[in-house]
Write a protein that binds this DNA or RNA. Structure first.
Lengths: 355, 355
DNA sequence: CACAGTTCCGTGTGCGCACACGTAAAAATA
DNA sequence: TATTTTTACGTGTGCGCACACGGAACTGTG
């Protein structure tokens, strides 16, 4: 590990001059700059990030705005944990992370939390752009203030975000289609269950559905896909009635597709029909879903590594602030197929990184 | 982020004393130590790892010994890349990583490379314990010299290793069984193809096979599993003859299970039988296998995150050397199901961590 | 030639911490 | 009480780098 000081000695200059060359600051004659550059390359010099961080006294604040989670819909727990993990790690680098949350069903809480967020004077923002119109307003403010921001989980385009961290929803739906087909026989039908109350996450859900249908179309399969829409998944009675109605009127249904993160609720309600409808594919490895998977009430879950997504949002934004290295415009996490047999061990809190 | 100096001021002592308390060094009266401890807790003090690394001038060397890879069997490419990635990151922390490789089929090259490795006077070793007996000799040396070491990819027990980084081979085989069952109908048979030349990796392979069989047994399935053993996968003619013989004599075979990383070779040879034997399950996402997957010649690949495994081997050992935090005795990576539809994007070089 | 302006580069300090060293004060011993 | 030993703590330096400051050497101008 060669140091600036050593390079300086080799080039017969002072460490300060080498530093100037490394950072392309002016004040160095072309001749000596070239000479130093050669030596730097020769010795494969890389700045010691550790020392660099210590020396750069600049502090950064990253503010995060995401939906809060509860017992019933704990999807946002994992991203938050990833964010907390990253928060600890970047602390030593002089990056402070402030988290704000809002109600997914309430756009004004989105706005309000954002206003709180702005008060921290962040140098970077992580946003889950749940509401399209409101997001336009918020991002306009950020653009005006020259605050870089990334989108997490929901991919909106044309908003000037630095990056999107999430999944390819269409592809994950497409994959679900394949898995469903693998389960079914030729004459079997499918039931897709939507939730009206999930408008906020409409983007991902609809892309998943499209991908799912696309798989069957592209492969010339003739299994019919029936749709029902349930207003509110929490209304136990309505859910049960709706499902029973569908299953009774269409006895060919053998598989159920739930393109949101609450397939466990559906699983709860088809216990009586398990023999007739043995296959259920859902999304996201929340605790409830995991339990249903273990209990054989869900066949497949498609997961998107939410912990990593949270972690990477902070990580990539920090890198950008600290070293001006812009992240990829799309950071897509792998689409994981989770079954009862390969469900990850929860005791191992994802993989810890460093520090 | 409160600093030692600030804590010192609050406690009316010098930074040196605070440092002593933090590291449980003696030379501090119990009274003042307690006082300082209270203040540390109150302010939730955490050492700044960055500054700590810079101040600790101790240098560590980690030596790695793994099989080399070639065009045909590139399995070990990914772990090496993970190691290289980690190597870059830990460099700033004063950890140097030296890599050595050996021939999987030649135990004396294993020994020889190890001897080379020892010359670097490593403070930690990453080992792929390919040969049992020889490994005993090597680990005895390491134990004697008090050099901590971890096993990568192959789980041997009772050798005094600090940790094992790899997969649960039995579980991954078990999962393969489930996937196979999902593909097959009741009366279908299975062909499992072993490779004699893979003795070195015998542990993983046999565990996978056991897990595979176990799935069928546990679930009371009656699909017969036929075994053939091919001496050398590279002997194209023999491979073809062996497979054809099996498929012709047992027409009920509809699925093939290849418990090693070279299923693509098998895939190459069953083109003529694709209609009759549509399902092939193999292991490890090497480039060749990935290509076969994309071309629909392989149905499922079970992958084990080899990049992450390499990364974590270095990572956990570094943590141990730097901060004396011992890693989990088993670091098992998730068992990934890879299909044509969710094959990861190779352009995105796994996920970069920090620095 | 004197002067100011510019170009180019060296010096010094501090980031937060670890640790060696030094030194008062307290305790033990003579 | 004088002296040694031990205890308890303060001080100083350096890790590798960024950056502010200052100054020497050079250039141009009257």
């Amino acid at each position: 590990m060669i140091t600036i000081k050593e390079i300086a000695k080799l080039a017969n200059v002072s460490p300060g001059t080498v530093d100037r060359v490394i950072h392309n600051r002016d004040g160095v004659s072309e001749k000596t700059a070239d000479r130093i550059k050669v030596i730097l390359k020769e010795h494969n010099f890389k700045v010691n990030r550790i020392a660099q961080s210590l020396a750069m006294k600049k502090k950064y604040t990253i503010a995060v705005l995401l939906p809060h989670y509860d017992e019933e819909d704990s999807f946002w727990k994992a991203p938050l944990e990833g964010i907390e993990k990253a928060k600890e790690e970047v602390r030593s680098f002089g990056v402070v992370v402030e988290t704000f949350s809002f109600d997914q069903k309430n756009s004004s809480s989105y706005i309000k939390s954002f206003e709180q967020l702005l008060k921290t004077k962040p140098q970077g923002v992580v946003l889950v752009p749940t509401f399209k119109q409101e997001t336009r307003r918020l991002t306009n403010i950020l653009l005006q203030e020259n605050i870089p921001f990334v989108f997490l989980n929901i991919a909106l385009s044309g908003y000037g975000n630095l990056s999107f961290i999430g999944q390819d929803s269409f592809k994950s739906g497409y994959l679900s289609g394949k898995l469903m087909q693998l389960c079914l026989n030729e004459g079997d039908d499918i039931l897709t269950i939507h939730s009206r109350s999930n408008l906020s996450n409409f983007n991902n859900i609809s892309q998943r559905t499209k991908g799912f249908d696309c798989y069957f179309k592209e492969n010339g399969l003739k299994n019919t896909n029936h749709y029902i829409e349930i207003e509110d998944f929490w209304d136990t009675k309505k859910v049960k009635v709706s499902i029973e109605m569908a299953l009774k009127s269409i006895p060919k249904i053998r598989g159920i597709f739930v393109p949101n993160s609450r397939s466990y609720i559906i699983a709860d309600h088809i216990n009586d029909y398990r023999d007739k409808v043995p296959f259920l594919i859902g999304f996201d490895l929340t605790e409830h879903n995991a339990q249903a998977l273990v209990d054989d009430r869900i066949t497949f879950l498609i997961s998107q590594k939410p912990f990593q997504q949270g972690y990477r949002a902070i990580n990539s934004l920090s890198k950008f602030l600290l070293y001006s290295t812009p992240p990829a415009t799309e950071i897509l996490s792998s689409i994981e197929i989770v079954t009862k047999e390969n469900i990850p061990d929860y005791r191992q809190k994802e993989h810890a990184i460093f520090l």
